[in-house]
């Protein structure tokens, strides 16, 4: 499946980065996400309970970041398996563009989805995917807005400590979006 979409977020790029830097925020944003763990500097795992029509299963996903061109673009590859329900393997290219005080998040996903979840007809999966995407970004925007008042944002965007954590942060941002997108992509198949 292929998916190309764009989401406008009413926050600066820095604020979006900061929010995406928080695995806890991300866990809250991905619908059905139970765990989200970083396993190395460029890898993370997540488990998500997804329900598409009659198929409900826990998907375990792993993603890896590559082609880093901080801060504009990243590539993410990953795969998720949901046992009898199916599996997904794919990737996403993500761009963050400043748009005045807002941020435009562009994402392009390609994923191969297999198994029972892929057998379900397009109508059902499209509507589920739309719903999941909407849920993700609604929650994400809510949390960013709440977070803009939080003092921790200041600390996260403070470049002073050293260069390494900043780079790691950007990796985290990419990973976080990647996990969200790839896992949502599991539900998107034609």
């Amino acid at each position: 499946m292929e998916l190309k979409a764009e989401q406008k977020i009413e926050a600066t790029r820095e604020q979006v980065y900061a929010a995406l830097n928080d695995p806890e925020i991300l866990r809250q944003c991905i619908p059905g996400c139970e765990t989200l763990e970083k396993t190395s500097e460029t890898e993370m795992t997540a488990s998500v309970v997804l329900k598409v029509g009659p198929v409900k299963a826990k998907f375990k996903g792993q993603v890896e970041l590559s082609n880093l061109t901080p801060p504009e673009s990243y590539s993410i590859t990953g795969e998720g398996t949901g046992g009898a329900a199916g599996f997904a393997k794919g990737g996403a290219d993500i761009k963050l563009l400043a748009d005045g005080t807002a941020t435009r998040l562009l994402y392009e996903v390609h994923a191969d989805v297999g198994g029972r979840i892929a057998q379900l007809g397009g109508r059902l999966i499209d509507s589920t995917a739309k719903k999941l995407s909407a849920q993700f970004f609604a929650k994400f925007c809510d949390l960013i807005e709440a977070g803009t008042q939080a003092p921790s944002i200041e600390a996260a965007s403070d470049p002073t400590p050293n260069a390494q954590p900043a780079a790691a942060n950007r990796i985290w941002i990419g990973l976080a979006i990647g996990v969200a997108v790839v896992i949502i992509a599991v539900a998107l198949s034609r």
Partner: peptide, 14 residues
């Protein structure tokens, strides 16, 4: 079937 060999429309919905 799609190119991965997934059965498309293997239910009475499709």
């Amino acid at each position: 079937y799609d190119e991965m060999g997934n059965v498309k429309g293997g239910s009475l919905m499709d």
